[in-house]
């Protein structure tokens, strides 16, 4: 039987959820016996292939137009989409900027920070993604099939979710696999 294919990507994140994925430690050897990892932000190939994959994992919230594009592309190219981590599930800690105007947020980050050299300005290049006024959860942008909350989700919750899917079951997180912090 052909291996199940897996792609992951990150949006507005601290990257902790991917660290938690790596925290499955030696189980990653067992994982690659059943799963072919096609693309992740922490391997050479970064983008899910056009021909698609079986399972896509997105970590992080949707904060700008680029991230919305990444989320939509992943949704188009995977059969089952997992929102992994609090930021992907609810917007998480990234949504703390939702209480402020975007311009205030940018000015604070690029101009007013104590460590910033005076005279700096907010970068406005067209190359740079545009921040949305409100940070969104992944399921506010695309359809999500499975939510795995946690900041980060424990490695065993990620392992459980993947192995349940491999066994053909819908993972139901309970007890210490379900956590918000």
């Amino acid at each position: 039987m052909a291996k199940v294919t897996l792609c992951t990507d990150w949006l507005d994140v601290c990257s902790g959820c991917h660290m938690s994925l790596l925290d499955i430690d030696e189980l990653i050897v067992e994982l690659v016996q059943h799963v072919q990892i096609l693309s992740t932000p922490i391997t050479d190939l970064k983008h899910p292939p056009e021909e698609g994959c079986d399972v896509g994992i997105l970590t992080g919230a949707v904060s700008n137009d680029h991230q919305e594009h990444v989320a939509k592309q992943m949704r188009e190219r995977c059969r089952i989409l997992i929102a992994l981590g609090d930021c992907a599930v609810t917007g998480g800690i990234c949504t703390m900027r939702n209480f402020f105007d975007v311009e205030d947020v940018l000015r604070r980050a690029y101009v007013e920070t104590e460590s910033t050299i005076p005279g700096q300005s907010v970068p406005r290049s067209n190359e740079i993604a545009k921040l949305y006024p409100q940070v969104k959860a992944v399921d506010q942008v695309v359809k999500v099939d499975l939510h795995v909350p946690g900041c980060p989700p424990p490695a065993k919750a990620i392992w459980y979710a993947i192995t349940e899917l491999l066994a053909g079951r819908i993972p139901v997180l309970t007890d210490d696999l379900l956590t918000y912090d």
Partner: peptide
Amino acid sequence: AYEYGLDHWEYDRAFPR
């Protein structure tokens, strides 16, 4: 929320200040 297996919620958040 843990007891009732709340892994996400459907409603948009209001983010009241």
